[in-house]
């Protein structure tokens, strides 16, 4: 079974799942998983495909969340108008920040990407008049889906958010898949694998990194908008390193540079994070260790385990190459 089919099958399973399991808490866990899967898929475009460690991803997610919250609360725009704007705002921010920072060498890019996100967070914390500072925006309204005056869904029940989240996740995956299969994804992989050689065969590293950065940023903005309207509160912590860290763990533990990896990572890490919410320090402590272990012992993530298990006769890396070739997501 190819990776694409596995992803489609998982989405279909998720679509019929509410018929069998429908508790409020289970619904919430799954909605958060969809959200994390969107966020980590968007980060994966940069970390997985281009191979640049961006530690400022929360900036784009947070900008999307803020844009959506402000537009719906201050301007009274409906969710379905806020959502695309959130994506555009985050994408433009990525274009601006990326075109400044992606020219720097890898070590410095890591630092400067984090610095940009942190400066943005401090700006928001201190913009008390304009963006309510640390108070943030409570009571972000729920979406409403109506057609010609009839309300199709008022999002008073979690099941509506469930299908909204699933649809947005499918959209995110579709975008990531098309990116990876286009010449942009191909160029990004070439740059990741061997920057000098990529240039020698005519690939402009900066341009490819920037395209991935902008697409990833815009998708993170969409995830931010969904987050804002689902949890109904947006504060400066959405711009914090915590969200970047969570998404990074999901990408790495699931499998970098694959479509399925961030999904698996979001499911495993996201659900565990939610379940262990009551013992906050212990769960983060555990995840710190897991991140270290995953990088050292499972560098290609959970996805590569599945590949090994399916083709036990082949040597591991050959199986990984055959099944999860980064060129055939």
């Amino acid at each position: 079974m190819t990776e694409n089919r596995t992803v489609v099958l998982l989405l279909l399973l998720a679509a019929i799942l509410p018929a069998f399991a429908g508790g409020q808490y289970v619904m919430h866990l799954l909605i958060m998983t969809f959200f994390y899967a969107m966020l980590s898929t968007s980060l994966n475009l940069i970390v997985g495909y281009v191979g640049e460690l961006s530690l400022g991803h929360a900036a784009f997610f947070g900008l999307g969340a803020y844009a959506s919250a402000v537009l719906s609360l201050e301007a009274g725009l409906p969710f379905f108008a806020c959502l695309p704007v959130a994506g555009v705002v985050a994408g433009l921010a990525a274009l601006l920040i990326g075109s400044i920072t992606l020219r720097l060498e890898g070590h410095f890019f890591v630092l400067i990407s984090l610095a940009f996100a942190e400066v943005l967070r401090y700006v928001v914390i201190n913009s008390i008049d304009l963006l309510r500072g640390p108070l943030g925006y409570p009571n972000v309204p729920a979406p409403r889906l109506s057609l010609g005056g009839t309300v199709l869904a008022d999002f008073s029940s979690k099941i509506h958010f469930y299908y909204l989240g699933l649809a947005l996740l499918a959209l995110t995956l579709l975008a990531a898949w098309r990116f990876a299969r286009s010449s942009y994804g191909l160029g990004a992989i070439a740059v990741r694998e061997n920057r000098r050689l990529a240039r020698a065969v005519g690939i402009d590293p900066f341009r490819h990194a920037l395209v991935a950065f902008v697409v990833g940023g815009a998708l993170a903005g969409l995830a931010g908008s969904f987050y804002a309207h689902y949890l109904t509160f947006v504060g400066p912590e959405v711009l914090g390193f915590g969200f970047t860290l969570s998404a990074l763990m999901m990408v790495v533990i699931g499998g970098r540079g694959t479509l399925l990896g961030p999904l698996l990572g979001a499911a495993v890490v996201g659900i565990t994070l939610e379940l262990l919410r009551s013992v906050n320090e212990a769960r983060l402590s555990i995840f710190g260790i897991l991140l270290v272990l995953a990088v050292i012992f499972l560098p290609d993530g959970l996805v590569s385990l599945a590949a090994r298990w399916r083709r036990p006769t082949l040597e591991a890396d050959q199986a990984t190459a055959a099944l999860d070739s980064p060129l055939r997501p």
Binding site: G106, E281, S285, G288, V292, V295
Partner: peptide, 23 residues
Amino acid sequence: AHILPVTLVTIGLSTFLVNTMLM
């Protein structure tokens, strides 16, 4: 190794140390 895995390890280590100290 490439900068990406090495930095990820130090991030994981930092997360572990900080939260273990909090505990």
